[in-house]
């Protein structure tokens, strides 16, 4: 097997004076063209992990351990160098496209800015590039959408624009943080299909609390709980034979369709109770 694109070793992230551990000594690899799902509930540390890779943690976060991307150490990388990676080699697709997009700037210009920032040589032709990308992510009228402000777009169109922006520079690694949580089922299905198609040839991490969503895009999954990875493996195997009680609870509680209508639904608490929470 070729070297992994991303290699995380003993990553620990603490916040504040009390040194509370948000992420507690986790290790994982993401191979070339591989997509890893990270599943967990709010507060499990999954988003903090993604932000750490992206170098977007606030100043008061303390990061130890190692994050190697393409052989380069990212922990402790100066902001000046991080800025060259971010949006070019590593890109992120956020949950809420309305807050991830600048409300005062037309969508086409925002996408173009990402390209222009990293490819100063490419002075002409950026607009064409943007329109091509909008078309690729399934926007029907790219020119009209490029000249619109984010609030004039539907939720699905905004998420498509965000995907175009993330992929425009052909990043080696794409981080997706709950990219479909704010969408309805119909649009969610379309966006998942689009991601599945467009992430081809990229390495990716897909963070979500919903296993059914992760399974649409990833083959391998890591389950995070209280800052630790408690289980990791092929997603179909984990769904079929979950080992950790928390994972068992997560799967049982997601199978609403297997419970007789009106009967009590199994919950995670039936399988696992947090030690100190």
């Amino acid at each position: 097997m070729s070297d992994p694109v991303l290699q995380v070793r003993d990553l620990t992230i603490t916040f504040g004076r009390r040194q509370q551990k948000a992420v507690d000594s986790i290790s994982f690899d993401v191979g070339a063209d591989e997509r890893l799902g990270i599943i967990g509930q709010s507060g499990s540390g999954k988003s903090v992990t993604a932000l750490a890779i992206m170098g977007l943690l606030p100043d008061h976060a303390r990061v130890t351990g190692s994050i190697r991307f393409d052989g380069r150490e990212l922990v402790g990388l100066p902001e000046r160098e991080y800025r060259q990676l971010r949006g070019d080699d590593i890109a992120m697709i956020f949950q809420e496209p309305m807050t991830a997009l600048d409300p005062t700037m037309k969508v086409g210009r925002q996408i173009g800015e990402v390209v222009a920032l990293h490819h100063a040589d490419q002075r002409g032709g950026i607009r064409d590039d943007v329109l091509t990308w909008l078309e690729r992510v399934g926007i029907v009228e790219p020119a009209r959408i490029a000249d619109s402000f984010p609030h004039e777009l539907s939720g699905g169109q905004r998420q498509r624009a965000l995907i175009a922006m993330a992929l425009a520079n052909h990043p080696g690694l794409v981080l997706c943080d709950e990219p479909t949580t704010a969408l309805d089922v119909l649009v969610q299905r379309q966006i998942l299909a689009l991601l599945d198609e467009q992430l081809e040839g990229h390495s990716a991490i897909f963070v979500s609390h919903d296993l059914a969503v992760v399974r649409q895009v990833c083959r391998r999954v890591a389950v995070m709980l209280e800052g630790r990875i408690v289980e990791e493996g092929p997603i179909d195997q984990i769904i079929a034979e979950p080992q950790h009680p928390y994972t068992q609870g997560l799967i049982a509680s997601a199978r609403i369709d297997r419970v007789q209508p009106g009967e009590r639904l199994p919950s995670v608490a039936d399988f696992y109770r947090a030690g100190d929470a």
Partner: peptide, 30 residues
């Protein structure tokens, strides 16, 4: 979170049953 949905749904089911409430549930989740 998926992990807490079941508990809230159980609570809603219980309350609706015990109080014989008429319920309109608006959702995209079939």
């Amino acid at each position: 979170d998926v992990s807490v949905r079941a508990q809230v749904l159980n609570l809603l089911t219980d309350e609706v049953n015990e109080r014989s409430l008429a319920l309109v549930l608006v959702s995209h989740d079939l």
